[in-house]
Design a protein around this nucleic acid. Sequence first.
RNA 1: GGAGAGGUGGCUGAGUGGACGAAAGCGCUCGCCUGGAGAGCGAGUAGGCAGGUGUAGAACUUGUCUCGUGGGUUCAAAUCCCACCCUCUCCGCCA
Length: 427
Amino acid sequence: MLDWKWVRDNREIIITALKNRNTEFDLDELFSLDDQRRSLQQEADLLKQKRNEESKKIGFLKKEGKDTEDLMKNVQNIAEQIKIIDDKLKATEDEWKEKQLWIPNIPHETVPIGQDESCNRVVRSWGKPREFDFEPRPHWDIGEGLDILDFERGSKIAASRFTVLKGLGARLERAIMNFMLDLHTQQHGYQEIFPPFLVNSKAMTGTGQLPKFAEELYKCQDDLYLIPTAEVPVTNYHADEILPDEILPLYYTSYTACFRREAGSYGKDVRGLIRQHQFNKVELVKFVAPETSYDELEKLLANAEEVLKALQLPYRVVALCSGDLGFSSAKTYDIEVWIPSQKTYREISSCSNFEDFQARRANIRYRNKAGKIGFVHTLNGSGLAIGRTAVAILENYQQENGTVVIPDVLRPYMQGLELITPQYRVI
RNA sequence: GGAGAGGUGGCUGAGUGGACGAAAGCGCUCGCCUGGAGAGCGAGUAGGCAGGUGUAGAACUUGUCUCGUGGGUUCAAAUCCCACCCUCUCCGCCA
């Protein structure tokens, strides 16, 4: 959500921003709702003032034992008028607020302008893709060969885009998770959070998944939704709070499973682990003072990159252009890891500064040293997507005979094991 | 799921229809005192929305709303009624 008073004074900036984002939006309707709302409130406030004054008079007169019949009738009259205006005001206000939830964030001035991902800008690359002296196989072949990934049974017990990890596959997933959490908590100063995997609609609205992206979410009963990312519970952790200045910046890291319907991506990445309805992710979330948020974004990005460096996986960092930017984000860097079988870089992390967009929706504020209250800036980024990290490891560390070398930093998490080989086969 | 108790400001906690955005204490801020950010003394200390003044988004000011949330009763609701949410205790169920 944007600062409405600012929106009122900066129409042109919003219109340009919406265009750069390829978003259609009827702002005029919002402005007229706002006008209505303000004049109704003024009307209502005036009547309420009158009612309150007269009502007090009745109190005094009654104590003196005087007749208040006429006055009471009069106030009753005013109260009826108030009710009518208040109802109108509430309806107008509700509509005005609801409509605002559909306006995306304004891209930061450093975001490249462009229609789609072709305009994204490569910021830097790290590591050299390995030269294979054989044709690198896709991870699903490797995984099935080692009997550590079972796609067929995943579909059988759930649906397509669900996978069973087995034996060393499950162990690898757990190793990656623990390695990442240890790195972020012990080296990068993040506090670990293990949140609920179901959240209510208020939380989903707070971070911007609702109302616009309802069809992307799995909805359960009782107003609960499966989280698509830890960003939702962890950012909303401080919803409706005023944080004291001295505890900022707050750094949280959180492992969660993530659940996404992936509606509208029917043809994409149908094979393998790249696009699943359920996947694991270690997330980084920050709450910071506004003036520091772009520095904090760079640091957060560096923290995520550190994981890939430690794993010795080649990657590049891409600054998303305005047309490719997520709804709530003011600026996003994607980290893309090299996938040998596809001979391309694929997204493995997305690091964003939301500025005060989410903070406004979720009402997350802070009090500075002078005692003044303002909205914090929120940031988050994957640190990293675990499934996709496993994909990158399987493919980049594969050997011609189908085994996979375990990256050095993961070996302590796999009881010293150096190589993934077929262990045993039940069937 | 059943029974009971409860939800008040940064915190503790008083308040059962009218002068209550709300006692008292703690905490915090400022001032006095002091060698001293210790003790003592004094003052201040919620947020949202709308309007006005303006060194125009600093400050000041007026009104209004907010005592878990939403309705209702009443001239008037923290206070009475209804529904829901949450917390605690006991029972049931479960891991």
